[in-house]
Design a protein around this nucleic acid. Structure first.
Lengths: 145, 145
DNA sequence: ATGCAACTTCAAGCTAAGTTGAGGTCAAGC
DNA sequence: GCTTGACCTCAACTTAGCTTGAAGTTGCAT
């Protein structure tokens, strides 16, 4: 472990489980900013392992790369997000997850009701009619979304 | 309401809330099969309103068009899915939703723990380390997925 | 000093679920 | 019979998150 411990892209890939092309893609998106050797090869800081791992977690939680960049914005390269950053970001994520779970549970309930009734009259179906947008001029379904 | 009540694509679009281009796209994917006039214009059965509405519901539940086609496969065009079909399909969908909810809840729990600990030592973090794949030769993170 | 793996860029391709536009045709009301 | 809006096809474009391939360069071990 030298002080000046810069990693080539392949090592970083092995360390994070990402593909080399994905890391290059992330650089293109501004998520990492490696140094370059005299011969133009990328050299990453060790802290970029954690930075990329953080990106992987955030993705797993359903954030897009754009949102992740936003979340990381303000963090200088070379600094991994700390506990305060994490608190801010994770709070946001938690709200997203809760909303998603709630919405899925509602659909599930509606679905249960629907299985019970076996209706498919569609006009009465809670699930189908979830958005409550008939308009009722003439007959048959109307705008759903 | 005549017996021979065939709908042009625009009417179907208004009835379902879909765009005309989306309906044409669905035809391309084999999800609907309109008749044609002598002048090559599409004419849909009234039952296609329900067929398309069914597609909208299924999409809302997270099925891809491919999966929907699979689900509708076997249903002759001109027949809207009935209660038995719906039971089969919705059972499948319900399992998907349950799995999705469970997975989100697990992440949420992990996240809670993580906020509690405020760790970011990453190596100990339950969320981060969820896949339990370190390998531990040398130091630092390893394959995440 | 040489061989070869690992690196470089750039362009194109992939999936999903459509949208947009150009250029042309059809059908229905007046 | 003419105008006008709705329709037709086909190709290209969109977003996200990458992958793949071609053609060329670097860096490290021997």
């Amino acid at each position: 472990m030298k002080a000046n411990d810069l990693l080539p892209i392949g090592d970083l890939a092995r360390r994070t489980g990402l593909s080399v092309s994905a890391i290059r893609f992330y650089e293109e998106k501004g998520l990492v900013e490696p140094h370059r050797t005299a011969g133009n090869q990328r050299r990453f800081l060790r802290s970029d392992i954690r930075r990329l791992s953080f990106i992987l977690i955030a993705q797993k939680l359903g954030l897009s790369l754009g949102e992740i960049e936003e979340a990381l914005c303000g963090l200088p390269h070379g600094r991994t997000p700390n506990a305060a950053d994490w608190k801010r970001i994770s709070g946001e994520v938690k709200r997203r997850i809760d909303a998603q779970i709630a919405s899925l549970q509602k659909v599930r309930e509606d679905l249960d009701g629907c299985i019970g009734c076996g209706c498919l009259s569609l006009k009465k179906c809670a699930l189908y009619n979830a958005d409550d947008k008939w308009g009722e001029d003439g007959s048959g379904p109307r705008v759903l979304r």
